[in-house]
Every structure is written in C-alpha cells, then in structure tokens.
Amino acid sequence: MLVVTRVCRIFLGLLIIALVGAVPDPPGDQILGRWLFPSQGSSVNIYRQGNRYFVRVAEVDQAGEKNYGLVKDSVLIRDLGYNGADWTGGRLTHPKTGMSLSVEVHMEEPRALTVTIYKGIKLLRKTFVMTRQ
C-alpha cells in the first residue's frame, strides 16, 4: 500500500509539472521571428520582453544603410502592445533623423505584416509590408 501511495504522489507531481510547463504562448507571440523589409535586403528580429514587443535590426544591406541609416543590432521599434487584433502603441526612432514616430502592426496572414508609421494623425502615414523570412 505504501508503494502505491508513493507512486501516485510521484505521478501527480509529474502531471502538475507537465501542466504548468504546458502554458500556451500569448497570442501576440505570432509576430515573433525574423522579418524582411520590402526590398528583401535588410531584416529585423521581433522579440518580446514582458508583455511588450520590440524590433531589432538583424541584417542590413547597403541600401538600408545608405537610405535609412539602419545599423545592425539597433532597436528600431519599442513598446508595441498586443490588443487582441493588432500590435499598437509602439514607437519607432528613425535611425537617420532620430525622429520618433508612432507604429502599428497588423498581421494579414502568418507570413505578412503590414506596418503603419505615422506622426501625429494617421492621415499622414507610411505603410509597408514585411514578409516572414
């Protein structure tokens, strides 16, 4: 009887550990990974810290460096929050001008992100699509 009780306790302990480790990733994590800019020469990594998402430059081609001032390993976008449909509230610091712009990201499909950058009102915005690498 003592052996059965001990086996049951061990089994229950392992079951609890397995269930705690099986907590699903937050739904906003579908954005995580490497993404290519429209020119396909430069790319970024999107990662999460806490409940916020950040975008770091991963690879830079000559056009990205010359035209936009991209620098490898620099954080391009900070503090995106997931609201259940989109990632909003982020700030992009333009690497060439230092200007701070608002950012929103929408995932049309698992392999494409629509990024909208604007200053002040959304009527004056730039939108581009990044594809998953």
Rank of each mutant, 00 (worst) to 15 (best):
Y118M: 09
K119Q: 14
K122C: 04
M99E: 15
A18Y: 10
P95S: 03
D25C: 11
Q49N: 11
T127F: 03
Y47D: 14
E59V: 12
G64W: 03
G89M: 06
R91C: 07
V105G: 01
S42W: 07
S74G: 04
E65G: 13
D61W: 02
L80E: 00
R9V: 04
V60I: 07
R52K: 13
L19C: 15
V20T: 08
E59T: 12
Y53K: 06
L2Q: 11
L80T: 05
M1R: 00
G33K: 08
K126V: 13
R111M: 13
R91N: 09
P110F: 09
Y68G: 11
G69C: 05
P24N: 05
G120M: 06
H106K: 11
R111W: 08
D29C: 09
C8A: 15
V44H: 02
E109R: 15
D29S: 12
K72M: 10
F11T: 15
F37P: 03
E65R: 14
D86F: 04
G33L: 03
I46C: 04
T88M: 06
M1A: 01
L32P: 05
A85N: 14
Y53R: 08
S42C: 10
R78L: 07
L80H: 00
A85E: 15
E109M: 13
Q62W: 13
G21S: 11
D29L: 05
I77F: 01
T88S: 10
P26F: 10
W35D: 03
S42P: 06
L36N: 15
K96P: 00
P27F: 01
V57R: 02
R132P: 08
H94K: 06
D86A: 10
K126T: 13
P38M: 03
I46W: 02
L2Y: 07
V44T: 14
G90Y: 05
I77H: 00
H106N: 15
V129M: 13
S39W: 10
L36T: 00
R52T: 08
D86E: 15
W87N: 04
M107Y: 04
L123K: 11
L70S: 05
V3H: 01
V57H: 00
K66V: 12
V71I: 14
Q49K: 12
D79S: 13
D79Y: 08
W35Q: 03
L70A: 05
I17A: 15
K126Q: 14
G84V: 03
K122Y: 06
A22Y: 12
K72H: 02
G64A: 07
L12Y: 06
D29P: 05
L92R: 00
I31W: 00
G28C: 04
Q40T: 14
G33E: 04
V55N: 07
E109V: 09
I46G: 02
M130K: 01
Y68L: 14
M107D: 00
